[in-house]
Amino acid sequence: MNEQIQEVLALTNRWVKRLSREKFSMLFTLIQPMLFWLIFFGNLFQRAADVQVVQAPNYMSFLAAGVVVMTVLNNGLAGGVDLLFDKENGFLERLMATPIRRSSVILSRFLFVMAITGMQILVILGVAFLFGVSAETGILGIALILVLGMLFGIGLTSISMAMAFSVKSHGDFFSVLGFLSLPMIFLSSALVPLVAMPGWMQFFAIFNPMTWVIDAVRPLIISGWSEALPQVGIALVVLIAFDALCLYGGAKAFKRSVG
């Protein structure tokens, strides 16, 4: 047990060091493109979006939840990239030739991605605050948003790592990634509430776990506990099922790749 902690900490420390050595990358990790959605998209549609339809004080406050979960989506789906490069240049092989528990590499990645995602969520909520959006449920609500984000992130990171271990080249990986992320966003309640969507998009959005997470995060920001709690309950059930599925698939891909 102590040995595994030593392994995971050392490996996580490597991810942190790598990020800190890439100053630009670090800057853009915190000020990520997702913020543009909030700032530009949010302000652009401030008047165009009908508050009767979005059921929120204004579009910006409606969008905040969507942008939080979009951040989780992007981070999660990109979470396996570094392992993909490790696999391609042989560093992973070097790690696997040492007497570490195979799971330590994966755990270090979860830990790192979750920490970064958590910080980004806080940055987004901070920027939203500057535009006059503050979470109705306060600190506790924000903590719950973080928990929901992490739970969603675990499943997404698993998918990403499974892909990293399965694809033949990183070209494939980025093609799939680019292909996946936009439909995931449009076919969810990130930009428009479920009820206001065209029927066929609504149909897909219902099967998108992202919708359920957003629908739980949103009332935590714009409504309050009484409206949020039932949604959070549903989201937790969806996320546990989603994570179980993703972790199972991820573990299989990992086993196949590194034994």
Binding site: R14, K17, G90, F91, E93, R94
Partner: peptide, 10 residues
Amino acid sequence: AQERAIDRFL
């Protein structure tokens, strides 16, 4: 390992 298996940021 072969030399390309080096983390250039470390």
